[in-house]
Design a protein around this nucleic acid. Structure first.
Lengths: 168, 168
DNA sequence: CCAAAAGTGTTTTAAATACACCCATGC
DNA sequence: GCATGGGTGTATTTAAAACACTTTTGG
């Protein structure tokens, strides 16, 4: 129900459907006014990294920012964004959550770049590949992506919904 | 503000002050009635394991259960309780959260029993001691606890508030 | 001296890290 | 044949797990 409201909001702002949505935290009084009694339930939505917003009639003055270059936000919204990023970083390590930000088919390099971008640190290609493969969240496809250089193997996620890796 | 409300509720039900409190999750419609539009913000409170409720005039028909033997709960309350336990288990591994359930001074055996109870699995005494010690969350006290057997060293937590262990 | 709980090390196994070269393609 | 990005293996370090005996006290 709360989820539905959040989902509708993102849908109307982006035109996207079927994006990943996760509740983060509920803030008791995010407003500057101590008497307002506003309760804000914060959500994080994940959209394909390639997404670019089209100018939208309902939000002519809206803005879209890369999470890496967020401007200062009003109220406690900066706190919310920081919290979202923290959660996302954590889930990259033990879930397949990256599926929500990549196209159905992608190369290992693209996956690696996404991880490096979000985790904000360099990643060793060989160790990364070994670690991800041992999670068993990817399947290699028969097709390869052509281009000016050596063709890259294409992968897709086994599941297109959130799955945690059990740690024994 | 939400925290305050939860805190007051637990205080009046238990008579305790200064207990650990943490917001868990916000449920959009926990009621059976789909039109009720109730929003429930679930919290987890931790009290000393030794706590026993005194019969309280304001809650003459209230009940107190060990988390290990909760009865079936109405609505989605069972879901909430399960979620709380999951979070608590996770935090035992990388925080000093046990401070909230132990007296100021305790023996290593008591700490170990608490972990075994919550994690619901046997714990190897030697590995456990080494792991906890390497976290640096405990300080050994000079005094020892007497008794019919070999005296046990007493420990206390360095911090009496939540601290996470940074993993390098 | 016996019962009961406290305390202590070493070996094995698995996971994380560090690190550099060859491969396949288009031009 | 060369520029470009794709792909691979090993050695080292660190952490987790398995495992049993000795110590101290009170009675």
């Amino acid at each position: 129900m709360l989820d539905d409201a959040a989902r509708r909001e993102i849908e109307s702002a982006t035109g996207l459907h079927d994006f990943y949505l996760e509740q983060l935290f509920t803030f008791g009084d995010p407003s500057r006014d101590p008497r307002s009694h506003v309760v804000s339930v914060a959500y994080m939505a994940l959209v394909p990294h390639a997404y670019e917003p089209a100018p939208h009639p309902d939000f002519p003055r809206g803005h879209w920012f890369e999470f890496t270059s967020l401007p200062p936000l009003a109220y406690d919204h900066g706190e919310m964004a920081a919290y979202a990023l923290r959660r996302l970083k954590a889930k990259l390590e033990y879930t397949n959550i990256a599926y929500a930000m990549l196209p159905r088919e992608f190369t290992f390099a693209e996956l690696e770049e996404l991880y490096a971008l979000i985790l904000d640190r360099p990643i060793d290609r060989r160790n990364f590949r070994r670690r991800i493969m041992s999670m068993g969240i990817l399947q290699e496809l028969a097709r390869k992506r052509g281009g000016p250089h050596r063709p890259a193997a294409l992968y897709s996620f086994v599941h297109q919904s959130l799955h945690s890796i059990e740690m024994l």
